[in-house]
C-alpha cells in the first residue's frame, strides 16, 4: 500500500488534478478545501505527507503551520505549494521545517519533491 498524502488547497481544480496524478503514482490521497477540520483529521488518520497552500480563503496558512508544529503531529513532513512566493514567506516556511515550492509549479518537479520527501521509490515504478 502507498503512502498517505493529505492535500489542503482551496483551488479544488488544482488539488483534484494533483490527487489524481498522485493516485496514479500509487499514493493514497485525500483532499481538503480548508483547514478547519485539519487537526481533527490528523488525529483520526495517519498521514505521511501534507501538501498545502498558504492562501486558504483568507485563512493564514502560516498559523496553520505553527499549530501543526505545536501539536502532537509536529513530525509530519509538510510541502507548501503556494502562490505566496515572497522571500519572507519562504523563510518563514523554512523556519517551520517545511519544504517550499512556488506556484506556478512544474508537476514533474513537484512529484520528484514528494518522492524525495517520502524517501521512497515510486510504488508503481513510474520514472519521473
Amino acid at each position: 500500500m502507498g503512502h498517505n498524502i493529505l492535500i489542503v488547497d482551496d483551488n479544488i481544480y488544482f488539488s483534484r488534478l494533483l490527487a489524481s496524478q498522485l493516485t496514479r503514482l500509487g499514493y493514497v490521497v485525500r483532499v481538503m478545501a480548508n483547514h478547519e477540520e485539519l487537526l481533527n483529521l490528523l488525529s483520526s488518520d495517519h498521514y505521511d505527507l501534507l501538501i498545502m497552500e498558504l492562501l486558504l480563503n483568507g485563512q493564514d496558512g502560516l498559523s496553520l503551520l505553527r499549530s501543526i508544529r505545536c501539536s502532537p503531529y509536529s513530525y509530519l513532513p509538510i510541502l507548501v505549494v503556494s502562490h505566496r512566493s515572497g522571500y519572507v514567506d519562504q523563510l518563514r516556511v523554512a523556519e517551520f521545517d517545511a519544504h517550499f515550492l512556488s506556484k506556478p509549479v512544474d508537476l514533474t518537479q513537484l512529484f520528484k519533491t514528494v518522492l524525495i520527501m517520502l524517501k521512497k521509490e515510486s510504488p508503481v515504478g513510474i520514472s519521473l
Binding site: Y13, L17, K103, D106, L107, Q109
Partner: peptide, 11 residues
C-alpha cells in the same frame, strides 16, 4: 486556474 498554478510541460 490550471494555467495560473502550473508551469513546464503541463502548462
Amino acid at each position: 486556474p490550471y494555467l495560473e498554478s502550473l508551469k513546464g510541460e503541463s502548462f
